[in-house]
Design a protein around this nucleic acid. Sequence first.
DNA 1: CTAACTATTGACATCGATAACATTCGTCAA
DNA 2: TTGACGAATGTTATCGATGTCAATAGTTAG
Lengths: 335, 335
Amino acid sequence: MASKPPVSLKDIAEAAGVSTITVSRALRGLSLVTPDTRRQITEIAHRLGYVPNQVASSLRSRKTGLIAVVMPTVAGSIFSDTVNSISNELGKAGYQIIIGESSYDIEQEQAVLEALVQRRPDGVIIAGVNHTRTSRELLSAMNVPVVEIWDMTEDPVDSLVGFSNRHAAYEFTLALIDKGYRRFAIASGPMERLNRAQQRAEGHGEALKFKGLRSFGSIVIPHFMGMLSSGETLLKFVKDNPELDCLFCTNELIAIGATVQCRRAGIKIPDEIAIVGFGDVEAASIIDPPLTTICIHGAAMGQEAARIIRDRLAGKTEERKILDVGFDIAWRGTA
Amino acid sequence: MASKPPVSLKDIAEAAGVSTITVSRALRGLSLVTPDTRRQITEIAHRLGYVPNQVASSLRSRKTGLIAVVMPTVAGSIFSDTVNSISNELGKAGYQIIIGESSYDIEQEQAVLEALVQRRPDGVIIAGVNHTRTSRELLSAMNVPVVEIWDMTEDPVDSLVGFSNRHAAYEFTLALIDKGYRRFAIASGPMERLNRAQQRAEGHGEALKFKGLRSFGSIVIPHFMGMLSSGETLLKFVKDNPELDCLFCTNELIAIGATVQCRRAGIKIPDEIAIVGFGDVEAASIIDPPLTTICIHGAAMGQEAARIIRDRLAGKTEERKILDVGFDIAWRGTA
DNA sequence: CTAACTATTGACATCGATAACATTCGTCAA
DNA sequence: TTGACGAATGTTATCGATGTCAATAGTTAG
């Protein structure tokens, strides 16, 4: 464990007989150095095994090359498309992402944000538009581009790339009514989870009301313990409420769980009961029957958000934007 | 966009009439300051909206609080358990992870590593034991704890938490033969993908040989384009080779795809053909029939790796370790 | 009463890079 | 010939914190 002292610009400068700033310029490719000098410096740097210290660079230049990404969770499949496309899009431009998990809780989100901010990210992408007052202040005070995603509002902190959860649920419900379904119950994941599930429920309710229908019940999975486990709860609910003809799930994973468990219990889907989800994760299309659901453009949101950040940091655009990526209905086998 | 200058320790020091170092100590909770002084400093810091600059702190203290995590991909479900458990376990100790994707390629891995190293992470967790020479040198030269995971070898760079892919495939194959299967074909994802798939194939082959059986064919999905798409290719393969009684997939996702597509095509599983996977992602248990597969302890590996890093950084242990987390066979519906 | 000690606080250097400004030198137009 | 100019390089200050060692004040023992 000899642990030789790390090589710095200074060491290279001494070896090359030039000043540190020349080395810095040479290695950054700043076209301010003679090709010959650069070649020599590069060679020495390589020989000494030089590894640039981005920490020092960040401190001085006030650019960390980090983008903070705050999502409710990255554990499941729901947000992973978004995170991946952010990472890919920003990676192209040389940025690294640092992820924080808000666990569907704005207090937790604030805590995460407070930790991330200390690393002085060059930009922030954050899920949702509902934050604590302190979080909003923090985001504004950072003086870096901020993009909220996965939701819609009139007054974002800065830019916004999302869709209206309420509107999607509303339209989806109307379409289901058009298809002939009348006796809906609504199933949700933990309701305290920000207010996206809440908005979906409201959109659903408004559509029912608009069509003069009443709800035939609702059930909440208070603690999400996996798809199959939630599915068992929902199977019981479905059995207990035989009058239902459609289970409207505001959460994709519980919809998948419900479908799998109902099918295993021998319930015919969609003849005995239709089940629909919200989100379209990959697993939705491999179950039997494949899930009819709202297709959220998670990857597109990530990509657009990343682009906005990238362009803002490159000085290309300075305007804040609001972008609605909409949604699609994926009609498959469960409704 | 007024962009006030950021608040630093100095500003607080001036406002409180003390030196910056005292502020630093107070805010770090170093028990070297009078409770009264601390209270006052904390109050002022809060009032000024002070946000500690971890970049500066990292530079001076040579501790970034970052752990680099290098995985083949984080896009799918395969490695996400591992990454999540790493993140959770390290999060408890106040560390943040920065992720790099090697895309199943050791040259790419090296490139990613070279980028990550510049951020001076306090530790590295990296999938696989096969790296370029330069990567290995880089890892050693960093003088931070390194844990390789998801594989097994005699001479890790530093510590290792994994399992033997070869051995798992070997044992699994033997167990399948015990169950009565005799006419195997092997299906793999892209083979250039490091050598884990290769090792699995070898373990499978050795078991066949040991039992005096021959292979009835093999197929490679050269470019993975999703579960269902791979499944179509495998369905065709299965139809073309009606003598097979078991399709041994070295990749979980293609096993799922094959199962789904075969079932949709009306092929009886496992009666007409058995299909097995390798990895046990969550989707494996929701398909019909649920997939019989090797259960890899991805979360356990992540957690153990994170613990090793954490303990090493806390000075608790200094020994390098090799830990084999083994594997389980999950007998479900497809074999 | 003084030495010895502990508890607090401070001064200064430093981590490794880069921004800002300065300098040198050769070239070329006036 | 001179001065303006641009290319290449250098000098110095600085980013914002913390490690190290020094200093001050208050307390206790002898």
